[in-house]
């Protein structure tokens, strides 16, 4: 009998995901493959760094009660994470099928989860609707912590909000309403998040201003 049985189910931006079972529990195996387009030294450095960050940040997030899959194992040499496999669709897919009133509670809950992360100085690093899995109704899990870190810097937290806002805006016309709903949830568990939001707006206007004149010096 094979200990692990797995089949490839998804290809993300960085990793290939295999799903299988290990001692009867469903697992996901996340394998970060080398990328042909970057220098092998850069590639190895990044993949190793992200593997370690993801394992650490996921573990910390779980400890403080944020909904993330549990971590079963790390194989540094082969760049592999073994994590709990979750049922459900990406938030991105749900946004194409669900009416806006069904999305509301999801965005409030997501706001709660991210507020909890930030109040504990945990940064996601790639906070987009492609990295949130929706299980039942408003039950969700946050995945893909490879760009995550532990940091109390305002700028890092603001970057999370800006990444979330920008991708949301790119894919969804009703993004402002949804972002505000998310923000309500975020601020309700993390009142200091006001400052994060202010900082996000600063980064945004800095980018805009630069777009106009300073990018050309």
């Amino acid at each position: 009998m094979k200990l692990i049985q797995a089949e490839k189910i998804a290809k993300g931006a960085e990793a290939v995901i295999f799903k299988g079972t290990f001692l009867q529990s469903p697992i996901a195996i996340k394998h970060r493959l080398p990328k042909s387009y970057r220098h092998p030294d850069i590639d190895n450095r990044i993949r190793l760094h992200r593997l370690r960050s993801e394992a650490k940040v996921m573990t910390n997030a779980r400890k403080i009660g944020v909904s993330v899959p549990s971590l079963f194992g790390v194989d540094i040499e082969d760049h592999i994470l073994i994590i709990e496999s979750l049922e459900g669709k990406l938030l991105f897919e749900e946004m194409n099928s669900l009416p806006i009133d069904k999305l509301d509670p999801i965005f409030v809950n997501l706001g709660h989860q991210i507020g909890l992360l930030h109040s504990n100085d945990i940064i996601h690093g790639d906070l987009t609707v492609f990295n949130v899995l929706i299980q039942l109704e408003d039950k969700l899990s946050i995945i893909d912590f490879g760009l995550g870190k532990i940091s109390n810097e305002l700028e890092a937290k603001a970057d999370d909000l800006l990444t979330f806002y920008s991708t949301l805006k790119a894919i969804q016309p009703a993004s402002n309403i949804l972002f505000n709903t998310f923000l309500e949830g975020y601020l309700s568990v993390y009142p200091e998040g006001k400052n994060t939001y202010e900082q996000m707006k600063k980064i945004q206007s800095r980018a805009r201003y630069i777009a106009r004149e300073d990018r050309l010096e």
């Binding site: 850069i42 690093g125 790639d126 760009l147 970057d159 800006l162 990444t163 920008s166 991708t167």
Partner: peptide
């Protein structure tokens, strides 16, 4: 290859 910072924020 000299060492330089590598930062990416989502897709930005």
């Amino acid at each position: 290859l000299l060492l330089l910072p590598y930062t990416i924020k989502g897709m930005s």
